[in-house]
Write a protein that binds this DNA or RNA. Structure first.
Lengths: 187, 187
DNA sequence: AGCATCTCGCAGTGATCGTTGCGTTAGTAG
DNA sequence: CTACTAACGCAACGATCACTGCGAGATGCT
């Protein structure tokens, strides 16, 4: 597991060779996950990315670590936290955005693959969303208003969204996601 | 994929050889899943079960199908549907039983592995629980009382339980599960 | 008991995986 | 411009995997 590559030089420049290889490997993983047919193994990933398997083995070591790296890149800074001044509207936009995000088959395949690696790295799929949810609640509290506790909001919003996406065959819709907010916030 | 083995004879007797092999393989899968270290592959499973890999290949074909078979056996008829006459108490017992079930590391590993196979077979981990939940709601309706719709109950009970078990590192507790019921049913 | 049928064990095969040593190339510092 | 470091390509190696005929043993029916 090498979350921070040991080279501060070659990796720092966004257009360096290491960065290009990294991007190619990440894209290869996403493509193979959406294909759903090919087996997700390091030689296959390397061939798809146009690099040698040795490189992937040395940089990431295992498919699990590589998946975790792809997931952290994928689930970071992709949804902007809404700030409309109204908690209800913030949560509705947040929930519908997350529903749209999780209804993407590629994203869903990534989440399922990460969960399948078994470790605690399944948290990277939701850690960012959790922080965003907490941020919205805290902002409402800073405005002097009462909010449900974070745990309750997680159970009412994140849990149904992820549960429906991962365990059922019906993709979450933005409309349904908004009903979750109406159940969380009393009228 | 062979959910129904083609032999009605040898499989029908519970003490037959096929049944013994099947039980040994199932137990081997569960043990390897809880070990978490060994790789979950067919030769390893077969060696652990004391059978030849050929047998496993022929009967199940792939690790995914074998996992689905283990899961259907595991998640069938393990929780008895409560019937106390009170919907609230039924749901509280059901939720706390499910929380206790999902807090078992072995069960959790099985769920995560099934999800990792990517297919729609992740549904087998919750299909039985869904039916049990529907049964309790329908029984309450047959008593002439109003109940939340099934979808709402799923979002409020099953989703948080599975979400917390799979995506977080905090195991669901029976006490917390009961609070989910209190949020679903208004006072 | 005899027979048919199914399942399992056995050994072998091709393919792929994970890993390592070495030379080359790209990128950076002085 | 030169030198140094790090990342990559290349080619091997052993190990394991998925799979396939074939024979033996078990099971159930007559």
């Amino acid at each position: 597991m090498r979350p921070a590559p040991s080279s501060p030089r070659a990796e720092s420049r966004p257009g360096g060779r290491s960065a290009r290889v990294r991007a190619a490997v990440h894209q290869a993983v996403r493509e193979l996950l959406s294909d759903e047919a090919d087996e997700l193994t390091i030689p296959v990933i390397a061939a798809r990315a146009g690099v040698h398997a040795t490189t992937v083995y040395r940089r990431w070591g295992s498919v699990g670590d590589l998946l975790a790296d792809v997931a952290t890149s994928r689930f970071s800074g992709d949804i902007v936290v809404p700030d409309t001044g109204s908690l209800r509207e913030d949560l509705e936009r947040f929930a519908s955005d997350l529903a749209r995000d999780l209804s993407d088959p590629d994203t869903l395949s990534l989440v399922r693959a990460i969960v399948g690696t078994g470790g605690e790295n399944a948290g990277v799929c939701r850690a960012e969303r959790q922080r965003q949810l907490e941020a919205m609640l805290e902002r409402e509290q800073a405005r002097g208003n009462e909010t449900p506790p974070v745990e309750r909001a997680t159970d009412a919003l994140l849990a149904p969204l992820y549960y429906r996406a991962v365990f059922t065959d019906q993709a979450p819709t933005p409309e349904w996601a908004r009903t979750l907010v109406s159940h969380l916030l009393p009228d």
